[in-house]
């Protein structure tokens, strides 16, 4: 294997690549290029990247078991952490720039934007997974770790609900992400992949 593609180097490349959407958004913010509603652009873009990383994270295991593609397997944790990173940016941008840190109006917000309801447990669970992701936490949690981390399936379903709830003029986002996430979940119960 070429030196620049060893596991250590792959870790560097994937890290930098995963960071580029954030850097790109930061650059557009700095150069005032986020359009007339920069807050909305930030919230939508960071949300989409959080979902993209959720899809990537969930694709790692099927890629290994079904396609025998194990090159990304050691980096699953990093992809998952980037999902949490963009989801946290998404939440922070929403709280600061859309809600204007006006936490008293959150109840009113939930009635007007009910799709937010699905996203709150999703982010809380993601944070739990992020906190329990280091090696020593894995040892600390023991057998329970696996169960805790299976909540990513629930997170995926919550995210599908979060997106589908927002359907307005097009089914595109809901269908594309719904299909990707649901099929990645289905691959886990699909009998074919049971053979080891």
């Amino acid at each position: 294997m070429p030196k620049l593609l060893t596991k250590e180097w792959r870790r560097v490349w994937i890290f930098l690549l995963s960071l580029t959407p954030g850097i790109w958004l930061g650059w557009r913010l700095y150069t005032d290029n986020l359009g007339p509603e920069p807050a909305k652009t930030l919230v939508i873009s960071t949300g989409i990247w959080a979902v993209n990383f959720l899809v990537l994270t969930l694709a790692v295991t099927p890629a290994k078991k079904i396609a025998h593609l194990s090159i990304v397997s050691p980096h699953r944790r990093m992809l998952g952490l980037f999902c949490w990173f963009y989801a946290s940016l998404h939440l922070a941008c929403y709280l600061l720039f859309i809600l204007g840190a006006d936490f008293q109006s959150i109840a009113q917000e939930l009635t007007q934007r009910p799709f937010i309801v699905a996203s709150i447990p999703a982010w809380l669970l993601l944070s739990l997974l992020a906190i329990t992701s280091p090696q020593y936490m894995l040892r600390l949690c023991g057998k329970r770790w696996k169960y805790i981390h299976r909540s990513i399936y629930l997170i995926a379903l919550l995210v599908v609900a979060h997106i589908a709830w927002q359907i307005r003029a097009s089914y595109q986002n809901a269908l594309v992400y719904g299909f990707l996430l649901i099929s990645l979940l289905a691959l886990r119960i699909w009998p074919l992949q049971i053979r080891k």
Binding site: E37, A39, L42, L96, F97, G100, Q112, R113
Partner: peptide, 18 residues
Amino acid sequence: PRWSQAKERRLPNSLLNP
């Protein structure tokens, strides 16, 4: 039904001033 029409965001706005 899904949001208030009492106010509006006059564009362009900025991050800290909607």
